[in-house]
Design a protein around this nucleic acid. Structure first.
Lengths: 120, 120
DNA sequence: CGTTCATATGTGCGCTTGTTCATATGTCTT
DNA sequence: AAGACATATGAACAAGCGCACATATGAACG
C-alpha cells in the first residue's frame, strides 16, 4: 500500500517517535465519532445542562423515543452517560465531566472560525 | 415524531434556553466528524508534530497516496490544514492552533478512562 | 393478573463514507 | 516537447450508520 518515492527520513523519524500507538488513536477516533452526530451532540449538550428522562429528550429534539433510546445506548456503552431509575422513568445524565469540556473545545474553534469569516 | 406523554416542563424549559441553535450544533457535529476517523486523526496528529508532504504521510500510515489525498482534501476544505508548495511536493501543516488542543482534550478523557478501568 | 406508561431492542432500509482503481493535473528535468 | 515524479480528482463499490417500525421488557396501579 505505502509508496515511498522521495526522502522524508528526517521528518518521518521525528513524527514516528511522537505519535501515539494505533490503539490509542483508534480509541480517540471512536470517542470523537460519538460527538460527530447531530442527534448525539444535542443529547450530550442537553444533558450537560440538566438530567433528563428519555421522552423529555425525544420531545426536545422532536424525534422518536426509539431513535433517542438507540443513541442513549451508544452513549451509555461508551460511558459518557449514566442512568438513574425513578419509578417507570429513567433519567439520564452525563457520566463524565470531560464531555462538556470536549464540546466546549470544539465550540471555541467554531466561534473563532466564524469571527474570522466576518473579517474577510 | 415527538411523543409527549408525561410532564417535563420544568427541566425542558431550562434546557431549551441554554442549548445553542441547530446550526451551531450541526457545525459542531461536522467538526467532530472530522476527528472521528482513524486515518484523519492520524494525519492531524502527525501534522501537529511536523509539516509533512503527502507521500510522507502515506508512508507513515502505510496507505495509498490517493487515500491520503482524499482525506487531506476534506481536512483542507474544513480549514484544518493548509498547504505550501515546494517544487513538485506539497507540504501540509495544521491551519489551526485549536486542532491539537481538541485532540488533547479527547486524549485526556481516554487516559482517565483507562486509569479508572485499572482500579476496578 | 391485566392494563398502561416508559423504555429497550431487533430488524430492515436508505444514506453516507472511506477506500481503490483509473486518470488527470501540475511541476521539474533533460 | 517528452518523460518522470508528486499530487489531485472522478467513479464505483463495500461497509457502516442513523432512523423507523414493530415488538419486548419492566414498573406501577387498579
Amino acid at each position: 500500500m505505502a509508496e515511498a518515492r522521495h526522502n522524508h527520513e528526517q521528518s518521518l523519524k521525528k513524527v514516528h517517535e511522537m505519535i501515539p500507538k494505533d490503539e490509542t488513536l483508534f480509541d480517540l477516533a471512536d470517542l470523537f465519532k460519538l460527538f460527530g452526530d447531530t442527534t448525539r451532540i444535542k443529547i450530550l449538550y442537553a444533558l450537560s445542562e440538566s438530567e433528563l428522562c428519555v421522552c423529555a429528550i425525544a420531545e426536545l429534539l422532536g424525534m422518536t423515543q426509539s431513535a433517542i433510546s438507540h443513541q442513549l445506548k451508544i452513549l451509555k456503552d461508551a460511558k459518557l452517560v449514566k442512568t438513574r431509575r425513578e419509578g417507570k422513568t429513567i433519567n439520564y445524565s452525563l457520566d463524565d465531566e470531560h464531555v462538556r469540556s470536549i464540546i466546549d473545545c470544539g465550540y471555541e474553534h467554531i466561534m473563532e472560525e466564524r469571527k474570522n469569516e466576518k473579517n474577510i
